[in-house]
Amino acid sequence: MSEPVSAVKNAVFSGIVRVEDCGPQGMITLRSDASNAKLKQAVKVVIGADLPPVRGISANGDRAVAWMSPDEWLILLPYAEARAAEAELRKALAGTHHLAETVSDARAFFRVTGDAARVREVLAKLVPVDLHPARFGTGEMRRTRMAQVAAAIWLESEGEARVICFRSVGAYVFDLLSAAAANGSEVAFFDA
């Protein structure tokens, strides 16, 4: 069996912040009624965390569940564990209306790290989201556009953001992030 390969093969760019491909990441799209008690229990068993609030992420070590819409969540876990977790979710949700599908190979996953203000600046150049700390905090998820493509962003911590996009546009998103992070591209707003 072949080894998984990420969209941009562990590429790294260092400028005003560091942009890096996170490599293969297990991801499961999960859809169901948010009030479904079986759903809440299944996520708790598989991830070890509760369903997050609107636009939030609940984490437990190397596993997390991110809010994507009122009836959709994205489960993040080690790549090698995604298929087994999908099967466990399907079994736990049998008899209820749901969708659980592994999408690991259909997505690209990036990390943007550095000075907290510069991380927000790099993202702000590319997404129509108010990234002021009072409006977009640590652990918040946003589905949005990054230039011309769909993406999801969140702050893992101050100074570390994560970006998910479709694998087919992974190289484009890596290049966008790299251009926005190029030395000399500072907006100077944060320096004033």
Rank of each mutant, 00 (worst) to 15 (best):
V103L: 01
T144L: 06
V43H: 07
G56V: 08
A147M: 12
M1R: 10
E88L: 08
R143W: 06
G170D: 05
F174V: 00
A100R: 10
A7D: 07
G95C: 10
I47N: 02
C165Q: 08
A82P: 07
V54D: 09
S14R: 14
A64K: 08
E88P: 01
G48D: 05
E86W: 00
D71E: 13
V5P: 01
F189Q: 03
F189S: 09
D71N: 15
Q25A: 15
L74I: 13
A59S: 15
D130L: 06
A179Y: 12
T138M: 01
E186T: 06
R63G: 05
T138D: 03
G170A: 08
F190C: 10
V173I: 06
H98N: 14
M141T: 12
D50I: 01
D62N: 14
L39H: 05
A87N: 10
S185A: 15
L89A: 03
E158F: 04
V129C: 06
A180Y: 02
M141G: 04
L155W: 09
S69L: 07
E88I: 01
L77W: 04
L51K: 06
R55K: 13
A124P: 00
A150F: 11
I16S: 07
L155G: 12
D62F: 14
H98Y: 14
P24N: 10
E101D: 05
G56K: 08
D175W: 00
A181C: 04
P4H: 11
A192R: 11
K38T: 04
R31Q: 15
S6L: 02
N183G: 05
F166G: 14
D115R: 12
S168K: 09
P24K: 07
V65W: 06
A192Y: 05
A49Y: 04
G48F: 08
M27R: 15
E140P: 00
V103A: 06
G23V: 11
V65Y: 07
F190G: 14
F109H: 15
Q41T: 10
E140A: 03
V122S: 04
G26C: 08
D105I: 02
A106R: 15
V122E: 03
D62Y: 10
W154D: 10
D130P: 02
G159V: 11
S14T: 15
A182T: 13
N60W: 09
A106S: 15
M141A: 03
S185H: 12
T138P: 02
V54F: 04
L93R: 00
T102P: 03
M1S: 15
R145S: 14
D71H: 14
V8F: 00
E81K: 10
K44M: 10
D105Y: 01
A179Q: 13
E81I: 03
G61L: 13
P52Q: 04
A37F: 05
P70I: 04
M68F: 15
D130K: 04
D175K: 01
I28S: 08
N36G: 09
K91R: 10
P70K: 07
A116G: 12
S104N: 09
F110A: 01
N10R: 03
F174N: 00
R83F: 07
A116R: 09
G184H: 07
V103C: 09
E158L: 01
A84R: 09
A180N: 05
V17C: 11
H98E: 09
D115M: 12
